[in-house]
């Protein structure tokens, strides 16, 4: 009972225009948490890595091939940059067509219950922790590839085409190709999900018109659906690329962690995230530590650019779909 007066007062306050203003301020304050996190991250990475970048140059750090904390005290990121590029592009190329196939099949061909199952499984793939992929990679995939693919190929090459050996590298099971394969499996759902959405966005009249012309199902895809969903599919590929660039644990577990150039197909390699995971808690020299943070800064920039480009593509796709409607 004694509550009545204050609550009445609060009510009138809350329901006046100032209530809305207070609410929007509160919500904006909480939301600026996102802003703060992003800015803090960029700043920490920049300021933490500024010294090696200044010392070796913005490009010099990127293209330097020596990562030697002992004798030369020189830090060049190129082996890790190259490893990141090779693994993520390789994984994208390998996963792109299966992912697209699954998306097209689920969106256009499969009977509804099957499509639901496929979609569910694709979502599940994205939710499986990356350490579990790494675990499977270490104990099942790497030994299998070594015994049934790498080693036979290597031994064959040793007898018949010794010129190939420097390109194949050491067939230990841990290495570049193993990392690419596991990454490919991990990024499939990212490409597939966006491709699926983009295909679903294509208006039905487009399909109907093509069918009316007597086109087969594939021809409908080819003529009416894929051209309109192209940008969305590309955006999905960008997202997958971003994910592949940053994937850390599964890659660290199977890539072999070797930064000796040149890289070979079967031999060990390293990526920017994997070297941070390996060395960050243990880098003793300040310059070594700062070089790792500088690597993180470059990774940040690459992810930023990829996201902006991918976002632009998605927006264009949305505009395109609206335009057609």
């Amino acid at each position: 009972m004694q509550q009545t007066a204050p609550s009445h007062h609060r009510r009138s306050l809350a329901y006046s225009a100032s209530g809305d203003r207070v609410f929007s301020v509160i919500i904006a304050l909480l939301a600026s948490g996102v802003l703060i996190l992003a800015v803090l991250m960029a700043w920490e990475l920049y300021s933490g890595g500024a010294d090696p970048i200044r010392r070796f140059g913005l490009l010099g750090f990127l293209t330097g091939t020596e990562w030697d904390p002992v004798i030369k005290k020189q830090f060049g990121a190129w082996p890790y940059v190259l490893g990141t590029i090779l693994t993520s592009i390789g994984a994208l190329l390998l996963s792109f067509f299966p992912a697209l196939g699954a998306a097209i099949y689920a969106a256009e061909y499969a009977p509804r219950p099957v499509a639901v199952v496929i979609n569910y499984l694709l979502d599940l793939t994205a939710a499986v922790p990356s350490v579990i992929y790494g675990l499977w990679g270490i104990f099942i995939m790497a030994p299998f590839l070594r015994d049934h693919f790498y080693l036979p190929t290597y031994l064959w090459a040793a007898n018949h085409a010794p010129g190939l050996l420097p390109f194949l590298g050491n067939p230990s099971g841990y290495g570049l190709l193993t990392a690419i394969l596991i990454l490919a499996a991990m990024v499939v759902p990212f490409t597939a999900a966006l491709a699926r959405d983009a295909i679903a966005l294509v208006p039905a009249p487009q399909r109907e018109a093509a069918y009316a012309l007597g086109a087969t199902r594939w021809e409908v895809m080819q003529m009416a659906v894929l051209p309109l969903s192209r940008t969305g599919i590309i955006a999905g590929a960008f997202l997958a690329l971003g994910r592949a660039l940053g994937e850390t644990m599964a890659v660290t577990m199977v890539i072999g962690n070797s930064h000796k150039l040149p890289y070979t197909l079967f031999g060990g390699a390293a990526t920017m995230p994997s070297v941070i995971a390996n060395e960050f808690t243990e880098a003793v020299e300040p310059l070594h530590l700062e070089s790792l943070i500088a690597l993180g800064f470059y990774l940040f920039i690459v992810a930023l650019v990829l996201n902006i480009v991918g976002g632009l593509i998605i927006r264009r796709q949305a505009a395109l779909a609206r335009g057609v409607l």
């Binding site: 996102v34 991250m41 920490e44 990475l45 933490g48 994937e247 995230p273 991918g310």
Partner: peptide, 24 residues
Amino acid sequence: PIRTLADTLNGMPAILKGLVVFVL
């Protein structure tokens, strides 16, 4: 800005987030 930065944060490798938390 929040929309762009949320997307950027989302695309950022998780390990970098750990790195920043270590420092902060």
